[in-house]
């Protein structure tokens, strides 16, 4: 096991060790840079994917005296009219763009891998981390599929059980109480899904930082999740709710700016607000990923040095 872990010179270096560096530079390298990469990738993909859709919709406002402002008018009169008229081309364009988005999400594992590698920088250059992310892409993809399968299982199990529970409770309790009880059960399912997601991220850290196979990384992820559950759930909820709060505040702010009114500044202000929000959301994701990587590294180091977990011992770590 140890031999396997040390066979790769990169993997043999202690995961947390970093060269002396100023905190400002550290912030830039370990948080800002990965967040910017995630944001930039998503922004580019979104712009590329929405271009044909917005072109289809914009054809209806090309001759409007106030441009596309009526689409944002209260009441939705022009918006509904536009959707009615361009529904067919819009659906066709959406279908075509869907594949672009799916492909983009898959390839998005590379910038995500880069972010995982960067949040706990061990001194390697950005380009090297990027190359590493490409190298780990197949394992990250395998983890992705595994995670999706696990999500689907959770949704299926909790979905079918909650439907049965709801029907049973609605026969005996007032409908609101029955639904709230069912919702509590659904919340358990959501927590299970959250656990799947957290395990997935821990496993990603195992792949990127320790060069584990997908299987070994998953085992490490499960073990790490079990040992530091409260801390991880707390951090996860904090970053998730933080992101949701940011999006909600942004929505309120953008409503105030009201692009239905005239003024180019409104469009610029809204665009800036949105993009800053998305950058911050990516930043929160990096904070979470850093927590994940630290946890995985700590668990790895603890068991690697003294008493490795049975699951990790059972499966020798790969050399690359």
């Amino acid at each position: 096991m140890t031999g396997a872990a040390t066979s790769d010179p990169d993997m043999s270096s202690p995961p947390i060790s970093s060269p002396p560096i100023s905190s400002q530079a550290l912030f830039c390298r370990q948080l800002l840079l990965p967040a910017a990469v995630l944001w930039g990738y998503r922004a580019s993909l979104a712009a590329l994917a929405t271009l044909p859709l917005s072109a289809a919709l914009a054809s209806t406002t090309a001759h409007s005296p106030t441009g596309d402002r009526p689409l944002f008018a209260p009441g939705g009169n022009y918006l509904l009219e536009t959707l009615r008229l361009v529904k067919t081309p819009l659906m066709a364009a959406s279908y075509a763009q869907l594949w672009l988005v799916v492909g983009g999400v898959v390839l998005g594992l590379i910038p995500l891998g880069f972010a995982v590698a960067s949040v706990l920088d061990n001194g390697r250059s950005a380009s090297k981390r990027f190359v590493d992310a490409i190298r780990h892409f197949p394992r990250l993809l395998l983890l992705q599929f595994t995670s999706i399968a696990a999500y689907m299982a959770v949704v299926y199990v909790f979905g079918s059980l909650s439907a049965k529970l709801r029907d049973a409770l609605r026969n005996t309790l007032p409908i609101s109480q029955a639904d709230i009880t069912t919702a509590t059960f659904v919340l358990l399912g959501a927590l299970m899904a959250l656990a799947v997601g957290m395990t997935h991220d821990l496993a990603r850290a195992g792949v990127v930082h320790h060069g584990h196979t997908a299987k070994a990384s998953l085992r490490l992820g499960i073990y790490a999740l079990g040992s530091r559950l409260v801390w991880l759930v707390g951090l996860r909820l904090l970053t998730l709710f933080g992101g949701a709060l940011l999006v909600a505040v942004t929505a309120a702010l953008v409503t105030k700016i009201d692009v239905h009114q005239s003024g180019v500044w409104r469009v610029i202000a809204v665009a800036l607000t949105h993009q800053v929000t998305l950058l911050l959301v990516a930043g929160l994701q990096c904070v979470w990923l850093r927590g994940v990587v630290l946890t995985a590294a700590a668990e790895y180091a603890r068991h690697h040095i003294s008493e490795p977990p049975r699951s990790v011992v059972a499966t020798p770590l790969p050399s690359s």
Binding site: A43, S54, L57, A58, G67, D68, V259, L278
Partner: peptide
């Protein structure tokens, strides 16, 4: 006319 508001909003939602 162009449709900057529309493009901006769609892009944001997809992001």
């Amino acid at each position: 006319a162009r449709a900057p508001r529309l493009f901006e909003r769609l892009t944001y939602w997809l992001q």
